[in-house]
């Protein structure tokens, strides 16, 4: 299986690459200005996080919009990737009222394949100044934390997923399981 990581400049972009590699995926980190035509043949994409305001500044998100519009396989947006996904597809992202750094707890209120086999509450690692403020039409919110309503979302029909927290970080519980579930979707896109 081949899944690439789009680099939006996050501190944990390379961790995403490592987790995928450890799960046996053939993976590469690619710059976010890579034309979507060069991503042919991939089974999925991870849109990485990035520095403050990156997720809500389309200038810095390179061709992420192109990927969301034209890439044919599942996409997992993380942090800035998740915020941009919301904004690009008709929702919105803006500075968070209460930014979260480090340890937090998410609660899943909408079961989804992405969280299959996971408890409803678990500890996650956060690092964000911005957040999704308006869910795009056709998206469902899946999880929240005390200070952030949209910790996870997915498109109703297309295999597009967004996570505000960081499943690639060692301290996040069940992080590798979330990636495993995402990879199952990449293997068998609905």
């Amino acid at each position: 299986m081949r899944v690439s990581v789009i680099d939006n400049g996050g501190q944990w972009t390379h961790r995403e690459w490592r987790v995928l590699k450890y799960l046996g995926v053939e993976t590469k980190i690619v710059p976010n200005d890579t034309p979507v035509s060069q991503l042919n043949g991939l089974d999925g994409l991870v849109l990485s996080g990035g520095a403050p305001r990156v997720g809500i500044d389309p200038e810095k998100m390179g061709r992420n919009g192109e990927y969301l519009d034209a890439f044919y396989a599942p996409i997992l947006g993380i942090c800035a990737g998740h915020q941009f996904m919301a904004k690009h597809l008709g929702g919105d992202a803006a500075p968070a009222k209460v930014p979260e750094f480090g340890k937090s707890v998410v609660e899943i209120h909408q079961p989804d394949v992405l969280f299959q086999g996971l408890p409803n509450r678990f500890e996650v690692w956060e690092s964000h100044n911005d957040e999704v403020t308006i869910l795009p039409r056709d998206f469902v919110a899946l999880a929240s934390s005390q200070n952030c309503d949209v910790q996870a979302m997915r498109h109703r029909d297309r295999p597009l997923f967004g996570l505000q927290f960081h499943p690639e970080v060692e301290d996040t519980q069940f992080g590798a399981d979330i990636f495993r579930n995402f990879l199952k979707l990449c293997e068998n896109p609905k």
């Binding site: 939006n8 400049g9 501190q11 990035g50």
Partner: peptide
């Protein structure tokens, strides 16, 4: 952590 381009 040393950053560069997009990375802080």
């Amino acid at each position: 952590e040393s950053g560069g381009q997009l990375r802080d």
